[in-house]
Amino acid sequence: MTTTDLITQYLDIWNERDPAARLKLMEEVFTEDVFYADPDNAGLRGHAALSEAIGQARDKLGDLRFALDTVIGTHHDRALFTWRLDRVATGYDVVEFDADRISSIVGFFA
Rank of each mutant, 00 (worst) to 15 (best):
M1S: 09
M1R: 06
M1T: 11
M1Q: 07
T3S: 09
D5T: 15
D5M: 13
D5A: 11
I7A: 01
I7T: 04
T8V: 14
Q9M: 09
Q9K: 12
Y10E: 05
L11Y: 03
L11T: 06
L11I: 11
D12W: 09
I13S: 00
W14H: 09
W14V: 01
N15K: 07
N15E: 12
E16H: 07
E16F: 07
R17H: 15
D18H: 12
P19T: 05
P19K: 06
P19M: 04
A20H: 08
A21R: 13
A21Q: 13
A21G: 01
R22S: 10
R22N: 05
L23Q: 13
K24W: 10
K24P: 00
K24S: 13
K24T: 15
L25K: 14
M26W: 02
M26H: 02
E27Y: 00
E27N: 09
E27R: 10
V29N: 01
V29G: 01
E32K: 07
E32S: 06
E32Y: 00
D33S: 11
F35N: 06
Y36H: 08
Y36E: 05
D38Q: 09
D38Y: 05
D38T: 04
P39R: 01
D40S: 14
D40I: 01
N41I: 00
N41A: 09
N41R: 13
A42W: 01
A42R: 14
G43R: 14
L44D: 04
R45A: 07
R45K: 15
G46D: 05
H47A: 04
H47I: 05
H47N: 06
A48Q: 15
L50F: 05
S51M: 08
S51Q: 05
E52S: 13
A53H: 12
A53F: 13
A53I: 07
I54S: 03
I54T: 02
G55W: 05
G55Q: 04
Q56T: 08
R58A: 15
R58F: 06
R58N: 10
R58M: 12
D59K: 15
D59T: 13
D59Q: 15
K60T: 08
K60V: 08
K60F: 15
L61Y: 06
L61Q: 13
L61F: 11
G62D: 06
G62E: 05
D63K: 15
R65V: 12
F66Y: 12
A67I: 15
L68H: 04
D69R: 08
D69W: 11
T70K: 11
T70D: 14
I72H: 14
I72D: 08
H75A: 15
H76N: 15
R78G: 12
R78V: 10
W83I: 10
W83S: 03
R84P: 00
L85R: 01
L85V: 12
D86L: 06
V88E: 01
V88S: 12
A89N: 08
G91F: 14
G91D: 08
D93L: 01
V94R: 08
V94W: 09
V94T: 13
V95F: 00
E96L: 09
F97I: 08
D98R: 12
D98I: 01
A99P: 04
D100R: 00
R101Y: 00
R101N: 07
R101S: 06
I102L: 02
S104I: 01
S104W: 08
S104Y: 06
V106M: 10
V106W: 07
V106T: 13
V106D: 10
F108A: 03
F109I: 13
F109K: 00
A110H: 14
A110I: 11
A110M: 14
